[in-house]
Design a protein around this nucleic acid. Structure first.
Lengths: 349, 349
DNA sequence: AATTTATAGGTAACCGGTGTCATAAAGCAA
DNA sequence: TTGCTTTATGACACCGGTTACCTATAAATT
């Protein structure tokens, strides 16, 4: 590690000298502390403005024991999902002094808690953002709270601290999918859900069942199988379903990645979408319009969620606890109907 | 900004006290400086090992004037590309103390140079990673070098400092695509390239032309049009091409995103792939196997490149300049033939 | 043996901010 | 006017490391 001498930057000492006060007073102005005379403050602010002085983040991090890093913690099999979250978060961080750092995880690893905790301990991030399924790890969030670490979450279930969460109405979204298929006349519907580890899996599956129930339908156990939220698992599960003796006329999947897998499996089985098989995905990622036919999917405003959750994190610090939300903001989902769903052939006959 | 008191962490002072030396000596051990006795060193190393002490990154950043942040700088229209680069880079950074921070840019903005430079000035990143098309901005790299800032690039052309670059043989890759189509018997081939701003655009286009030339073919100007490396632009350009009076029997695109756009346009025009139209993409991103038929594409080992370029950045510091490469490492591309290419119908008749 | 030269290690200042506490001036009640 | 708060500000140590420089001892040279 070599040092770089870069004497161009202006420091708090320069500002102090220029305004004829101690650096502590400048520090007070920077941090909007009280007990600074109105005139003094104004003058210092003017000089800061003119010089374009920005406090050194490393120095502040050291003194505050808190850096300007915001970590995005994820273990999500869908690259599209992550890409969109990133965009939203980055948008929210634009113009602030915060930096987005990536903290991918592998929940299959035994020591992933330790890895995150050691990251927190070492780098003192300003805060963490958790997205599903990382966001559902209650034990982890407990440990973080113990360490007095800020974090916010996107999750479909209520967790320990509702003030720092954005809740997504996954069950309601899945219900929309169920209603849509039921209204089209499907009775033999299948569901490829995610790993049981994910809370969203339960939310979506239960919501889907509830939606079917409204029409007197039920989800047959043999038509309900577990995928891994990945494309490959989608192909595999769909292949199983389509070659079973009770072939479904419609498949609802826990996310888009798996739905795309269904497309491929259907193609290989010689089935046409939507004539022979209707497909409904979940997330409404960009891929829905890149495949043929364009896919009906439950719109999950991932990018907006990223923006909102990052904003929540940044603002949480400014607000006194009393003003903070005590109930998670709930984001409703909606169904975008495209061309992958139609009435089942049997109904037409 | 509130402070968090977290007296759990062990510091260099603790290590110094425990080993009965001054903190300076511990610092020497940490930084592998000479003039530390073999015994002393061993003993201090042992204590560091036992306590699991890790120097505080913020403090080091402040003293070194250099943080442990590595910024990925990109202005790339393809999310798949970025997602893969990220994976590779993260893989290389795993187990190190470096953090990956995201620095998306918009080259259309007038002040994007200033934004990057101000980021560098404020956060003193360890280094920057540039991917196309950001990597092709020679003016920017000049400014960064002036500021004595480390960076590495992935680019298809030689730039100012070959030691810190991984060069991709884009032209050769495109040549493979051309040969493949020519060998299948296509004579009326089209090319949708990227923006002229991107060097890769020229490399790929020229390589493609050269490949065709080997078979006595040429790329007609009216069948060579500019896209934006985005899906939408792919649809638009392909629609234009397919409705022109000289409809091509094959289209080679500058990246996969646009190739997927070609699929959609072909579908809308009632053309079958590959029977009526062969398509060759570039990048070989995961989407090639998620669409139908699976797409022939020039494999661009994006993830590996991310890994390699990050490794190059980390290591560049360890090596004395003399040992450093003086020629860019060159990565060859290959063509993955799938089902989107076949002989043109006219040949069969 | 005296002198020079390495080597091992320490001290103090510094990187650029912040917290704590003291202090002077100003405001206000008695 | 005196005495007590409140307000504005500065001095100084500290956050956890580093560099620059200095000293003491051991090894090498003459």
């Amino acid at each position: 590690m070599t040092t770089q001498r870069d004497k161009g930057t202006i420091t708090i000492n320069d500002i102090a000298r220029m305004s004829g006060v101690s650096k502590k007073t400048v520090s007070r102005v920077i941090n909007k502390s009280p007990s600074v005379g109105a005139n003094t403050r104004k003058q210092i602010e003017k000089i800061i403005e003119e010089t374009g002085f920005i406090p050194n983040p490393q120095a502040q991090a050291l003194a505050f024991r808190r850096s300007f890093l915001i970590a995005l913690v994820y273990d999500n099999p869908s690259p599209q999902y992550i890409a969109n979250i990133q965009r939203g978060v980055l948008k929210a961080l634009e113009g602030t002094r915060f930096q987005l750092v990536l903290r991918p995880c592998d929940r299959a690893e035994l020591n992933y808690h330790d890895k995150i905790l050691s990251f927190v301990q070492q780098h003192n991030p300003f805060g963490l953002i958790f997205v599903p399924s990382m966001s559902e790890d209650i034990e982890l969030s407990r440990k973080l709270k113990e360490r007095n670490c800020h974090f916010v979450r996107i999750a479909s279930v209520d967790l320990t601290d509702p003030a720092h969460q954005i809740k997504t109405a996954d069950a309601e979204g899945a219900k929309l999918a169920a209603r849509h298929l039921a209204q089209l006349g499907h009775t033999k519907v299948a569901h490829i859900h995610g790993p049981e580890l994910f809370q969203s899996t339960h939310e979506r599956r239960d919501g889907f069942k509830a939606g079917l129930a409204e029409f007197g339908l039920s989800l047959a156990p043999e038509l309900t199988i577990e995928g891994a939220y990945t494309f490959d698992s989608g192909v595999k599960c769909a292949t199983t379903l389509l070659h079973g003796k009770e072939r479904p006329t419609a498949i609802f999947t826990g996310n888009d990645e798996m739905a795309v897998g269904v497309y491929v499996a259907a193609r290989k089985a010689g089935l046409r979408i939507p004539q022979d098989l209707s497909v409904v995905g979940f997330d409404d990622t960009p891929i829905v319009s890149r495949i043929w036919p364009p896919m009906t999917s439950v719109r999950f405003p991932i990018r907006d969620l990223g923006f909102d959750v990052a904003t929540l994190l940044i603002d949480s610090d400014k607000m006194p606890p009393a003003q903070q939300r005590t109930v998670p903001q709930i984001v409703e989902l909606d169904l975008i109907i495209r061309e992958s769903t139609t009435a089942p052939v049997s109904e037409i006959r």
